[in-house]
């Protein structure tokens, strides 16, 4: 259980004069749930964007299962086995729910435009497999009954889940969830929590950013706290709750 899946070593990114992420070190063990918390603007989403290759770090190293992935293009990182969701939902809104998830299968399949034109038996078989596997991903997130709806017509909570299903479809080893519970009511959050556990049971590692402390404390194995781009604390939920630096950063806001 102690095998490291993701390692950040002294990672920094600057935008002009602003240092959004400042010398962050981190190790995530395979099969665990790691949470990243911190006040607004602390650099949480930026860390996700660094890991998924949307921004290359200004300095430092990011390793995924031992491979240095600095400067890799996002699609290559996904191919290696990191998938993500977005804080401000980014679904393909004019596509159906099923087609959204099918995009997740993209990097695991290979038919190109010639295959599309000729539709040989291999291509048809691949397409059938894509459909099956996508339906499976939808089932985990309990969205299979909505497969034929347009993504934009789903209610908000289901859109968040659809993003997770889409990410799952790419067979990731590590999945990054950017505020998965945002905008959900307590019941929806409860369901989501059990879904995330189910994903963990499948052997995946989960790294999530979330503002709901109850959600975070109940779900995570370890938590990292970020403030002004710097790591100010890391540890188990219990340790984080009682950490004075964390309490100071949240300034009186009750943690837990």
């Amino acid at each position: 259980m102690s095998k490291t899946i993701l390692e950040m070593d002294n990672v920094t990114i600057r935008f002009g004069g602003l240092t959004a992420v400042d010398s962050v070190d981190m190790k995530i063990e395979e099969g665990t749930i790691r949470a990243l918390i911190g006040p607004n603007g602390a650099g949480k989403s930026t860390i996700f964007n660094l890991i998924t290759g949307i921004y290359p770090p200004s300095s430092g190293e990011i390793r995924f299962r031992g491979t240095l992935i600095n400067g890799y293009k996002p699609h290559l990182i996904t191919e290696l086995g990191i998938a993500r969701t977005f804080q401000n939902i980014r679904l393909f809104s004019e596509m159906t729910v099923l087609d959204n998830v099918k995009i997740g299968r993209h990097c695991r399949t290979k038919a190109g435009f010639l295959g599309a034109l000729l539709r040989g038996p291999g291509v048809k078989a691949e397409e059938r497999a894509i459909t099956e596997e996508s339906m499976e991903a939808l089932k985990i997130l309990e969205l299979d009954h909505k497969a034929d709806e347009l993504a934009k017509n789903l209610p908000y909570g289901e859109q968040r889940r659809l993003e997770i299903a889409r990410a799952m479809a790419s067979n990731p080893k590590l999945i990054l969830l950017d505020e998965p519970a945002a905008g959900m009511n307590p019941q929806e959050k409860q369901t989501l929590m059990s879904m995330i556990r189910k994903i963990q049971d499948k052997g995946l590692t989960i790294f999530l950013v979330e503002h709901d402390m109850k959600f975070v404390m109940n779900l995570s194995d370890r938590i990292m706290v970020l403030d002004y781009g710097r790591k100010i604390a890391a540890g188990s939920p219990a340790e984080i709750k009682s950490n004075p630096a964390v309490i100071a950063a949240y300034l009186g806001k009750e943690v837990g």
């Binding site: 998924t52 949307i54 293009k73 996002p74 699609h75 996904t78 191919e79 998938a83 993500r84 977005f86 980014r90 679904l91 393909f92 809104s93 004019e94 596509m95 087609d99 099918k102 995009i103 997740g104 299968r105 993209h106 990097c107 399949t109 038919a111 190109g112 435009f113 295959g115 599309a116 034109l117 539709r119 291509v123 691949e126 397409e127 894509i130 889409r166 990410a167 790419s170």
Partner: peptide
């Protein structure tokens, strides 16, 4: 045929959201 294929889906995904499409491995 192009539109209703793995390839076609990736085209539509790019139109709908380029960043998400790239993050999904396209």
């Amino acid at each position: 045929r192009l539109e209703n294929s793995r390839f076609g889906r990736s085209l539509i995904a790019i139109r709908e959201d380029e960043i998400a499409a790239e993050a999904m491995g396209i």
